[in-house]
Design a protein around this nucleic acid. Structure first.
Length: 899
DNA sequence: GCGGACTGCTTACCT
DNA sequence: ACAGGTAAGCAGTCCGCG
């Protein structure tokens, strides 16, 4: 019998109607959208009709009951999800070099309940560079191939084949390929489906929707690649299509739950779900601002006024609260949470089970690490913003720690509500406001700047061919792996096993400067200390992707088997690269790089475009940046499925070669090189001719582009690498690496540093400097005397903020100061985990540190702070010809004596 | 037993 | 689970010192 979505809450209707108490009577709200009336029952699962208008492919998974892949289609007009089940009879499989005759001897395989059939196929083996015959082992169920602890086809073959085979084969000669690819991914690749793109259902079949209006743009892009090779142009077109198709508006709701915990310092365990859920908030794109509150004994209403458009609904018991929440989860096609995988959705599920709600009435699929929805798409923003690439490249390192408070504060300027009392003591209206704020922030994190986060996830889903759930949870190496897998399948290439790449292509040959690293990396040019006026910064735009493109780098091409290619040597290494056959990675990464440089970067800046379109281009551009920035690193990461250390090593080596060549050439032209790092050169006062010469040289000799990136009015270098300050023509100041900009230092010191920075921004010429120096000396003297006289406002100004990189017990080798402070906090009852930010001050007592909340003002170790102020400013002062000690009035002798 | 030289650990940053 | 290179501060160890 088909269930309907409303069946999920049918029990509630059998109860006597509950009196609904409102915090205050909200004026009736006009429905923001017709969805309010739409609540007619839909059958579950919501199978797509025979004909469905244009809808977005947002997710895919495997339906174990029907033994089919199911695709979730989001139809933006109705704002609903439709399920489309595979109708092509596609089946899971893996590949092997054993013949059917040999395989038939393996009883456990033939008799395996999940075994279906064999099929002979020809595939191109990229490691051997030739076509080979393989046997496709087809299964009835993806779990039969792998994914179970034992007794799967993947295990049986290497275990049993040696026993039944007449010829002896070494274990490594028994090959199995593609047995670890998720089945729905395999399906997506084989059918060449494009997640994130637009499809329609026609007569029960899934059909890609072609938009005429993008044709013109696509042909413009094609024109940009007219001088490229045919292959490169084809790849660029492929990417461009994925990036040019529009995004829908995403109908979505953010939810957040609050749980009553008797011990306020303890986070309730979502697996036990022992405590009641007392509030659930919903903040949606339909304009819903709703809080469900559990009625409890002795809780006061509260006098705070909630905004008029907020709907507060009281629930008499917890089951009612949960069922109403589940209705929301079955209504919206996209549900947003902040840490819902590990907390909110997991807690709701286990709590519902504890309360006796049948499993099938809970619309959540709880996995080991994720919680997915039976109906829509759950996006856990904690996982998304936690992603280092997203944090650094997409959001420019604007948020520091991955808390709702910090991310919200940094990106949308909204913080969590600060609680003055324990959770259990809150009035209803305080609880409602607090809970709603969290889902408000969660929602707005996806809505600011034209829904940029949702669009970014969509674009990444397209690039990587992954469902939106997966792409928002997994790292950049998975995104890259998946589009590479897709292209292997498209070209009938066997996807090689990581071990085979390693065996065939070997290891690295250079020695890293840092102990424990696998190979040598980039060059950093020794800076010329001092203040330099008119500094030009030149750089290679995406150096490593350019190298991968120009030098044809990839696991296939590096150290290939052709004899003639050996002369095509990689500088500074024993490696060589293929001249005959283009590597797939080189094409993929190269075309992506060119497309970003030739098209997306400009479009994102093009003031003539309507702002909506421009923001789309800046999202696309940002997505490409994230991918390109990681595209070299993945080859050196052993967790990457196409891990190939010599490719990473060769890329870095060519990078060193390139910058060294251009550095020599610059010097031969008589240009003074002040500094350089990896892909950049800082030139002192170069002439236009000199710059043009450098550009020409790089073009001809290295076959790569180099840009004049920016010019500093002046730059300040110390003798330290990766540490400098540059003032641009427009007065903006770049600060790199200096302690004064680091996030962990006390605000008392940081503020002084920023004052200096602002003062330096005003310096136009060498004469201005003298006045600026006096002002800077005053800034330092002022801070110094605040410290000496103990005149700071509050200890929080002196707090260092350091992230706990690991769980407390795991610091066994040393005990850094923030760990000492954290242990003191733990003693006073706080729960701490890896990733938490520890704030501590330096004190005179035995451990030298105390958590800021436990330290009193008179125990602060002032001398330590003066020393820190000293070292922070020294990084700039010595270049300016100033001395900290002299500024604070110490004679050389006094400072020598340590006065 | 104490202090300086040294190494290693940890975090935050740069490209 | 992208990479390597650099800076800084502190913890811990070794060694020489009557």
């Amino acid at each position: 019998m088909a269930r309907t979505l409303l069946d999920y809450c049918d029990r509630q209707q059998t109860k006597p109607p509950q009196p609904e108490v409102k915090a205050q009577a909200p004026p009736p709200q006009p429905p923001t959208r017709e969805v309010k009336e739409k609540k007619k029952p839909r059958s579950f699962p919501p199978v797509a009709p025979k004909d469905l208008p244009a809808s977005y492919f947002v997710s895919a998974s495997y339906d174990g009951k029907q033994r089919k892949v199911v695709i979730k289609l989001y139809e933006p007009e109705s704002g609903q999800i439709y399920f489309w089940y595979d109708n092509t009879d596609h089946k899971p499989y893996c590949l092997t070099n054993l013949s059917q005759i040999e395989l038939e001897k393996i009883d456990r395989l033939i008799n395996h309940e999940g075994f279906d059939s064999f099929k002979l196929e020809e595939k191109y083996d990229p490691l051997e560079n030739k076509n080979i015959q393989v046997t496709k082992i087809v299964a009835k169920d993806p779990l039969a191939i792998g994914g179970r602890p034992a007794g799967t086809i993947r295990d049986i073959i290497p275990e049993d084949f040696p026993k039944v085979s007449a010829v002896h084969l070494e274990p490594q000669e028994i090959k199995l390929w593609e047995s670890k690819i998720k089945y729905y991914q395999s399906y997506i690749y084989d059918r060449q489906l494009l997640p994130g793109m637009i499809y329609e259902v026609k007569d029960g079949n899934l059909k890609e929707t072609v938009l005429e209006e993008t044709a013109e743009t696509l042909s413009k892009i094609k024109e940009l690649f007219k001088d490229a090779t045919d292959e490169e142009r084809e790849f660029a077109e492929m990417w461009a299509k994925l990036l040019e198709y529009p995004a829908p508006s995403f109908r979505r709701a953010a939810i957040d739950i609050e749980v009553y915990a008797p011990i306020s310092t303890r986070v309730p365990d979502p697996r036990e779900a022992a405590c009641p859920v007392i509030a659930v908030s919903v903040y949606s794109s339909d304009g819903e601002k709703r809080v469900l509150i559990l009625k409890r004994e002795g809780v006061r209403e509260g006098s705070e006024q909630l905004a008029a458009d907020i709907q507060v609904e009281y629930c008499q018991d917890e089951e009612e609260l949960l069922r109403k929440t589940f209705e929301v989860l079955l209504d919206y096609p996209f549900i947003l949470t902040f840490n819902g995988d590990d907390f909110d959705l997991r807690y709701l599920t286990h709590r519902a089970i504890n309360l006796g709600i049948p499993r099938h009435e809970i619309p959540i699929d709880v996995g080991k690490r994720v919680c997915l929805l039976k109906y829509g798409v759950h996006i856990d923003l904690y996982k998304f913003f936690f992603n280092r690439s997203v944090q650094i490249y997409a959001y420019g390192n604007r948020y520091k720690d991955i808390s709702l408070d910090d991310v919200g504060n940094a990106l949308i300027g909204t913080q969590k509500i600060r609680l003055e009392k324990a959770f259990g003591d809150l009035t209803y209206s305080e609880l409602a406001a607090y809970c709603l704020r969290d889902s408000e922030i969660t929602y707005k994190l996806t809505s600011f700047e034209n829904d940029s986060a949702m669009k970014l996830i969509l674009v990444l889903a397209r690039i990587s061919s992954m469902p939106m759930e997966d792409v928002s949870r997994q790292g950049v190496s998975r995104w890259i792996r998946n589009f590479m897998h897709r292209e292997h399948r498209k070209r009938n290439m066997l996807i090689p096993n990581a071990q085979d790449i390693l065996t065939k292509k070997g290891k690295t040959a250079t020695t890293a400067i840092i102990k424990g690293k696998k190979y040598k990396g980039a060059i950093v040019v020794e800076p010329k200390p001092g203040v330099h006026f008119n500094v030009a910064v030149m750089d290679f735009p995406s150096l490593y992707p350019s190298i991968i493109k120009v030098w044809n780098l990839g696991y296939q091409s590096i150290c290939c088997t052709h004899h003639d290619c050996k002369c095509h040597a990689i500088p500074d290494t024993p490696h060589w690269v293929c001249k005959e056959k283009r590597a797939l990675e080189s094409l993929l990464i190269g075309s992506l790089r060119d497309l970003r440089v030739k098209w997306y970067k400009n479009r994102a800046k093009d003031k003539n475009l309507p702002s909506e379109l421009r923001s789309w281009y800046s999202i696309a551009q940002g997505a490409l940046k994230v991918i390109l920035n990681a595209s070299y690193g993945v080859f050196g990461a052993d967790s990457f499925d196409l891990y190939c250390p010599p490719v990473a090593e060769a890329t870095a080596a060519i990078g060193r070669y390139s910058i060294t060549q251009i550095l020599r050439h610059a010097e031969s032209l008589g240009i003074q090189v002040l500094y350089g790092d990896t892909d950049s050169l800082f030139l002192k006062n170069p002439s236009k001719e000199q710059i043009d010469n450098l550009i020409r040289y790089t073009e001809h000799e290295l076959n790569m582009g180099i840009d004049m990136e920016k010019t500093y009015r002046y730059a300040v270098f110390s003798s330290r690498k990766k540490n400098y300050l540059g003032v641009l023509e427009n007065g903006m100041v770049d600060v790199k690496g200096l302690t004064g900009k680091k996030k962990h230092i006390p605000t008392l010191i940081k503020d002084a540093f920023n004052e200096m920075k602002e003062r330096l921004a005003k310096v136009k010429n060498p004469e201005d400097f003298e006045k600026a120096k006096k002002d800077i000396a005053n800034i330092i003297r002022e801070r110094h005397s605040i410290l000496k006289r103990r005149e700071w406002q509050d200890n929080s100004e002196l707090a260092f903020h350091v992230v706990l990189g690991d769980d407390l017990e795991r610091y066994t080798k040393t005990t850094p100061q923030h760990v000492k402070a954290a242990r003191l906090l733990k003693e006073s009852g706080r729960e701490l985990r890896a990733g938490d930010l520890i704030s501590f001050v330096k004190v005179k007592s035995k451990d030298h540190v105390k958590p800021v909340e436990l330290a009193s003002r008179n125990e602060v170790d002032v001398d330590k702070y003066i020393a820190y102020l000293h070292s922070t400013f020294d990084q700039v002062l010595d270049a300016l010809g100033l001395s900290f000690d002299e500024i604070i009035g110490l004679t050389r002798l006094e400072s020598f004596l340590g006065a």
